[in-house]
Design a protein around this nucleic acid. Structure first.
Lengths: 114, 114
DNA sequence: TTCATGTGTCATCTTTTTCTTACACGTGAA
DNA sequence: TTCACGTGTAAGAAAAAGATGACACATGAA
């Protein structure tokens, strides 16, 4: 077993929980592509696509590398990593054990007396 | 196959992409629980928990029903549904085909012909 | 009645995410 | 030089999500 940590899982789920990013992964699942071409295919601006690509790459779902084309242009090609997430209640229960908690002071439960 | 639609998938992923909601599912994976008790265990306020529970239930990941306790109190018990999401690039590629995009009248994908 | 338990919602504020616009740099070709 | 194509980033608006506090209602027990 030993899936991703709770924090990593949240990051991966957040990266996938978006229509555009889902379409990016879907497109790259077929073939690798470079940024400008991908932006044209998906119909989104390059700055926007750039942001989504960073989010997906940060989550480890895609990887990109800069290559030089024949005519000397710098092209950044992205492709999907072969991730495999199996989500069930028990798998989530296991991952949740490694969740980093926000530390709002150390007080146990916010006692209410009203 | 026939997994969830693209939109449903986005909703499920968005529902799980949150530390609190992940802990809710993790807790309910062990045993069903009612709102106030769950709020105490997780250390969150009831209005906040209520919001998160609604999001999870809307995504079909948990279900709640109102029951009457021995002493006449109305308790809302939640439990997890037995969902099973298998996330790979190809599975996402399939689901992405049924994504509804808020595309303002952009008929065919502009096949760029540079 | 008052207190403690349970349920829920509303208005508001803060934070994060999403998206656009504008700019910068580099190369090859006309 | 200018144009077309590629890369990237920064600032700010717009939208969505997260979180809080105050409120309302019902029940059983002291």
């Amino acid at each position: 077993m030993s899936g991703p940590t709770g924090d990593d899982l949240v990051e991966m789920l957040a990266a996938l929980a978006n229509p555009i990013r889902l379409r990016i992964v879907a497109t790259l699942a077929g073939r690798r592509d470079y940024v400008s071409q991908l932006a044209r295919e998906l119909g989104v601006s390059r700055p926007l696509l750039h942001m989504h690509l960073r989010r997906l790459e940060a989550a480890g779902l895609i990887t990109g590398r800069l290559e030089l084309s024949e005519d000397g242009k710098a092209m950044k090609y992205y492709e999907v990593t072969d991730f495999d997430l199996h989500l069930t209640a028990s798998a989530i229960a296991e991952a949740a054990q490694t969740l980093t908690m926000p530390d709002p002071g150390k007080g146990p439960a916010p006692k209410e007396s009203t």
